[in-house]
Amino acid sequence: QHKQVTGVSSQGCQGGCQTCSVYNGCLTCKPKLFIHLERDGMRQFGVCLASCPNGFYGTRSPDRNDCIKCGSECDSCFNRNFCLRCRAGSYLHKGKCTESCPDGLVPSDTMKECV
């Protein structure tokens, strides 16, 4: 789950937004929050989150914080090339998701890791 900041601000925006519009949803977020672009059918609109949803990681910069997609094999990640948790069927080892483990390690299905 991801924590969309609920409630409505004075401008009629979703709680975490700084500015928003009818068609695009959130355009800018309140400080420290991440803007995430959600797709719903043909629509794509902005929401402001405290932490990015599964499959995305947060990048911070002086003027904006974005949610960016992880690599396809990651369930959650630190950055595009470093996974924190793998999708079903692959095992985590030092930030990489692989279907088999390096020599000396065995796959653990409960932890989805090479141990």
Binding site: P62, N79, K94
Partner: peptide, 10 residues
């Protein structure tokens, strides 16, 4: 010795 990613930007 196990660090793979180090971000020091900004």
């Amino acid at each position: 010795s196990n660090l793979v990613v180090l971000h020091l930007h900004n």
